[in-house]
Computed example of a mutant assay.
Amino acid sequence: MKRIGLAVNPTKPNAIPVTKTLVELIERHGAHAFVDEESAAKIGRPELGISQDQFPTSVEILFVLGGDGTILGFARQFAKPGLPMLGINLGHLGFLSEAEPEDMENAVQRVLAGDYCLEERLMLQAQVVRGGRVVHEAVGLNDVAIAKGSFGRMVTNRVYVDDMYVDQYTGDGLLLSTPTGSTAYSLSCGGPVVSPHIDVIVLTPICPHTLHARPMVIAANQEVRVEVEATHDELVLSVDGQLFYELENHDVIHVREAGYKTTLIKWRDREFFDVLRRKLHVAT
């Protein structure tokens, strides 16, 4: 019998009633549901509650109820133990989600029938080195951004790939993205859309103050080193737009593929390019 975990973003509209309905659907189809403790209490089923730390050892699959940001957060938490996640969209875009609240019963039936595939998504590991010592370290599913934090200031990022000098980019910053993140911040900065089925890293300058700066795609097994220079101290490193670390002049950032990937549950009949057209409103 399947054991399905429900990780809920309680700040989303209708999160609690949707969670209650989903639990009823899972139980109706003969599976066990486990819910994060806060949400279990809110739906009046405290006996189903477990801590989020228990999900990797207690469930086989995790349903994530929220938007893309919710999935990014849980990806950083549950990718390492290899817990497969199915996104149920309670947000706006829902690019990473595979189901909507109105088709949850179909999603439950497909999962219980094994009618899905597992898609592994590249993650990036970032380290901030200061004075020869690692002061910050984080892993993200979408992107790592090195940026200035104030309007009207610029930052210079000197970039090396596998210790080979590439170029330096002066402007608002530099973005390093996975294929998953290529449809997020990188896309708005003029970066390419990359199929999630290949493992590469996209380097996209953010508002570069030069005509020749262009996005670049490198192999995922290459390491990027970025040396930061600025005449001010308002610098920041962000991971997935959710984790933020203050940077200092002359910090060195190392970015490489993480030692594990995010595992997403996907429908076999739902192609990436179909989702791309629909979610980004591309005319057909």
Rank of each mutant, 00 (worst) to 15 (best):
L72M: 15
S177D: 12
S97T: 10
V236Y: 13
K148G: 13
L93C: 08
T210A: 15
G30C: 08
V134A: 06
H209Q: 15
G191T: 07
W267C: 08
Y245G: 02
D53T: 09
I253E: 10
A7S: 13
E98N: 02
G94T: 03
D162L: 05
Q242G: 12
S195N: 12
P81Q: 11
P56G: 04
V135Y: 03
I88F: 00
M104R: 01
E257H: 14
F55M: 08
R256G: 10
E105Y: 00
R121P: 14
L72I: 11
F78S: 02
F95H: 05
T170Q: 05
A33S: 07
S97C: 12
N14Y: 00
S195R: 04
Y165E: 05
V23H: 00
P17W: 03
R121K: 12
D115K: 12
D103H: 03
H92R: 14
N9V: 03
L65D: 05
L176T: 08
E137F: 08
F55N: 03
I218H: 12
V129E: 15
V275F: 09
P17G: 03
H254F: 14
L72R: 05
C207L: 00
N157H: 10
G73T: 03
E246H: 11
A15S: 04
I146L: 14
L83P: 05
V134C: 14
L237R: 06
D143I: 10
N249H: 10
R28N: 04
D172S: 02
L276T: 13
A220C: 04
G67F: 01
K20D: 03
V35Y: 00
V228K: 03
P101E: 00
K279L: 13
E119K: 15
E223T: 14
G171W: 08
Q54T: 06
A33L: 06
S51Y: 11
H29R: 14
L112F: 06
I43A: 01
D163R: 13
F273L: 13
V108L: 05
R278V: 10
P13I: 00
G44C: 01
E98M: 02
Q77S: 12
D199H: 12
S186M: 07
F34R: 07
K2P: 15
L235V: 07
I201L: 11
V282E: 15
V202T: 13
R214W: 01
D251V: 04
F151C: 02
A258E: 09
Q242E: 14
E229S: 09
R153L: 07
V166D: 04
D172K: 00
P17D: 02
Q222E: 14
V159K: 05
H197M: 11
Y169Q: 06
K12S: 06
F272N: 10
E105N: 02
T170K: 10
A79F: 05
K2V: 09
E105I: 02
E120I: 07
D103F: 04
S195F: 04
M85L: 10
E137Q: 14
Y160V: 11
G132W: 09
K266P: 07
F244W: 12
H92L: 04
M123W: 06
G69Y: 09
L90Y: 00
G131A: 06
A147H: 14
L25M: 15
Q125M: 11
V252R: 12
G114H: 04
S177I: 11
S58G: 04
K148V: 10
F151E: 05
R225I: 04
L235F: 11
E120L: 06
V135W: 08
A75S: 13
